[in-house]
């Protein structure tokens, strides 16, 4: 077990940011904490990185208690905060050198770990970190978090503020890092990133709704699900919400996703319903649920037991 969290709670005044959260992460796993902004992801990360003391509960990272053994723990973890936290007035090289030095590590010894990432930064090694693009900053931050060869890596919303191509590259790197045995805990508000994790925990308002593999989550989705579109999407979504008392419909890219719990409305019936309301250009096809559909369902209907 690489990370084990038991009933961790944390409040800021009257606001309970994390409510008795428990989960476990296996060694060499990419584990995603998926949830909207304000769900408590960053608080949880800061507790696990020994920056914040929990009000209650216990957590161990790589076998070390995050409260008692924090000194030893800090040598074994790499933490990349959600906000870029390197020295903007130091160059790429100076930042990396500084963080290697304070960990008593040498860039040379651990270069193999960061090589794939750092080669992209090398042409800019004299540039000040503050002058890098968002994607480059992310890569530099990852290098600095890895330079002391941590056993566990905490990445708090690494995808925020980064273009899709850089994000994809970043995730490719994470997969390669996993291959070298590093456990990765990553948080994100992007549902497409969730599908790239080995396992995910869906978190909302400080509570975990479900923990499963992305495949397991979508497989556990039991309701009939359709992708629908028409010429007037706004009216379409409103009309479909009235299809049955518990029907739900929400925008999903170019389409709207329609959930009809309990079934009972075959495609033909839905098409007829839409035609009766004067919709034109209607397209309707049954689809497989994504992690986002699962998440929306969970937010609405509470915790699943899978």
């Amino acid at each position: 077990m690489s990370i084990s969290v038991q009933n961790i709670s944390k409040s800021y005044g009257p606001v309970q940011a994390v409510k008795a959260v428990s989960f476990e992460v296996l060694e060499g796993e990419i584990f995603g904490l998926i949830g909207p902004d304000g769900a408590g992801k960053t608080t949880l990360f800061r507790i696990l990185a020994s920056l914040l003391l929990p009000d209650a509960g216990q957590a161990r990272v790589d076998g070390l208690d995050v409260v008692q053994d924090y000194k030893a723990l800090r040598r074994r973890i790499g933490y990349m905060p959600g906000r870029f936290s390197l020295y903007q007035d130091l160059s790429v090289e100076e930042n990396l050198g500084f963080f290697a030095n304070v960990f008593g590590a040498h860039i040379r010894d651990n270069y193999d770990l960061i090589r794939d990432i750092y080669v992209q930064l090398e042409p800019f090694s004299d540039r000040r970190a503050g002058a890098l693009s968002g994607g480059m900053k992310q890569k530099l931050a990852l290098c600095c978090a890895l330079i002391h060869r941590p056993r566990v890596l905490f990445l708090d919303e690494p995808g925020t503020g980064v273009d899709p191509v850089s994000r994809k590259e970043f995730w490719d790197m994470l997969r390669r890092l996993r291959a070298s045995g590093i456990t990765i805990l990553v948080s994100t508000a992007y549902m497409d990133e969730a599908a790239l994790c080995d396992r995910v925990a869906l978190i909302q308002k400080g509570e975990i709704l479900a923990i499963d593999t992305p495949r397991g989550l979508t497989a556990a989705y039991r309701h009939p699900l359709f992708a629908v579109r028409s010429d007037d999407m706004y009216r379409l979504i409103r009309d479909l919400r009235d299809l049955t008392p518990d029907a739900d419909c929400y925008a999903f890219g170019e389409y709207a996703h329609l959930v009809v719990p309990g079934g009972g409305s075959p495609s033909a019936a839905i098409l007829q319903y839409l035609e009766a309301r004067g919709h034109t250009g209607v397209e309707l096809l049954p689809v497989q649920a994504t992690v986002e559909d699962s998440f929306i369902d969970l937010m609405k209907n509470g915790v699943w037991t899978t």
């Binding site: 040598r75 933490y79 390197l86 020295y87 903007q88 008593g104």
Partner: peptide, 13 residues
Amino acid sequence: EVGTIEQINVTPI
């Protein structure tokens, strides 16, 4: 203010 302290604090410094 800049947030660099966050990164410093997780080091063994």
